[in-house]
């Protein structure tokens, strides 16, 4: 498993979250060799960090948009 490049257009939030969940399940089940555990753990942390920053970025953008919505020109009446 390779880390996705940061500006990969195919990057997908839901897919990435699903992979993190898979990794956690695998580690929890105890089916991996130890070396693999460390490797996958590192991948999971990296994926999760990406999801978090994606979410934070999206929230920031949304807050800005909401602000513009709320600042909409004054209606007549």
């Amino acid at each position: 498993m390779k880390l996705e490049p940061k500006n990969n257009h195919n990057w997908n939030y839901e897919e990435t979250v699903a992979r993190v969940e898979e990794i956690i399940d695998r580690i929890e089940s105890g089916s991996l060799p130890l070396e693999k555990v460390f490797e996958e753990f590192a991948i999971a942390v990296e994926y999760l960090r990406k999801c978090e920053s994606f979410l934070a970025l999206g929230k920031e953008r949304m807050d800005l948009l909401i602000e513009t919505l709320e600042q909409e020109e004054e209606f007549e009446f």
Binding site: Y13, V17, V20, E21, I24, I27, E28, G30, L32, P33, L34, V37, F41, A44, V45, L48, C51, E52, L55, G58, K59, M62
Partner: peptide
């Protein structure tokens, strides 16, 4: 956003617990 944040947080918590919970470790 709140739902997604909570989901990510839960995943992070599970990851953070691994040093003491991973069976292999």
């Amino acid at each position: 956003i709140v739902r997604e944040s909570e989901h990510l947080e839960a995943l992070a918590t599970r990851l953070k617990r691994f040093p003491s919970t991973s069976p292999q470790l």
